[in-house]
């Protein structure tokens, strides 16, 4: 007879669940670990895709329009793969109060709209497709932050600042994606202008991230704990190297250098890759740092994570 125990068979997952349930600050795992990583990738791609589409539209960059549409479609696939029951995706049209449903509507407006606009860009028909695509892109840019902000169980996310931060990251990711494309397909975009906009949004994102963390540091104890997880807890490495280093310091420093001496397309593309990586790790770190509202009395246990 097998002597395998439930705990052994589940590779520690059962133990971890029990430990989480007993912890004062229960970590959020569903949207960041295991298949939850697919959701982070989906959120990242949908933001970057929608942002890149807006930049490509502004600079009349046909290759950018196509790549951005494909990116958002790929994001949709990642979203579906994350679901426990992906075959029921069609039920998510209940847009009454759910930001997930609104995002789903946005994706279903954007992908066909942008595809048709790419094929038929002229005339009234093109204008109609453009309007639908713009609406879809706008929804895609704002929905993710609102999905997190509606999560009352995770105080670190439950803030009106998060949708603004995520929208900024989506726009910045869009600019970065276009910079990556420029060496391969330069239709109408000027790398210096895109680089300048990218620098401006990057600085804005840095200020917003600092502001967001500053506010959360003085919010509820669970939010304080999440900030502590980012600063010197289990997410610190990703936060410092990915979110801050690759995502903010390198792009902003390169952008400032670029103001004095123009950078080559190749260098800009590399910097943009750092920026994209930083955007991904920002979403990952913010999701990973989330902890639930503590239910048990803590009797003096601090918000600082154990070292």
């Amino acid at each position: 007879m097998s002597t395998t125990t439930l705990r052994q068979a589940q590779g520690g997952a059962y133990d971890r669940l029990l430990a989480d349930l007993g912890a004062t600050f229960r970590p959020q795992r569903q949207w960041v670990e295991g298949r939850g990583l697919l959701l982070i990738i989906g959120h990242f791609l949908s933001g970057v895709g929608a942002g890149a589409w807006l930049f490509a539209l502004a600079f009349d960059q046909r290759a950018g329009l196509a790549a951005a549409t494909a990116t958002v479609a790929l994001a949709g696939v990642f979203h579906l793969l994350f679901l426990g029951r992906p075959e029921r995706f069609w039920r998510m049209f209940r847009a009454k109060s759910s930001w997930i449903a609104r995002g789903f509507v946005g994706m279903n407006l954007f992908v066909p709209g942008a595809l048709l606009y790419f094929v038929f860009p002229d005339g009234y028909v093109g204008g109609a497709f453009l309007a639908v695509s713009l609406l879809g892109a706008a929804i895609l840019i704002v929905y993710k932050g609102n999905v997190y902000a509606a999560s009352k169980g995770v105080p670190f996310w439950n803030s009106p600042l998060l949708p603004v931060l995520y929208a900024a990251y989506a726009l910045r990711g869009g600019g970065a994606a276009l910079l990556v494309l420029l060496p391969f397909a330069k239709d109408g975009a000027d790398e210096a202008t895109v680089g300048l906009i990218e620098l401006w949004i990057g600085l804005s994102a840095a200020v917003m991230l600092g502001f967001y963390l500053g506010v959360m540091r003085n919010a509820t104890r669970a939010a304080q704990r999440s900030v502590a997880e980012l600063m010197h807890g289990r997410v610190a490495l990703v936060f410092y190297l990915g979110t801050l280093g690759a995502g903010l310091v390198v792009p902003i420093a390169a952008g400032v250098v670029g103001l004095a001496a123009p950078l080559s397309e190749a260098v800009l593309a590399v910097v943009a890759c750092f920026s994209l990586g930083g955007d991904f790790f920002a979403k990952y770190a913010i999701a990973k740092a989330g902890v639930y509202v503590p239910l048990m009395p803590t009797l003096g246990e601090g918000a600082r994570p154990p070292r």
């Binding site: 569903q30 949207w31 426990g84 029951r85 029921r88 759910s98 009352k152 639930y292």
Partner: peptide, 16 residues
């Protein structure tokens, strides 16, 4: 029959 397993409700519930 209607749940898609998106787990948004788990994040929204403050009581786990």
């Amino acid at each position: 029959e209607a749940c898609v397993g998106c787990r948004a409700c788990m994040q929204a519930c403050p009581y786990g």
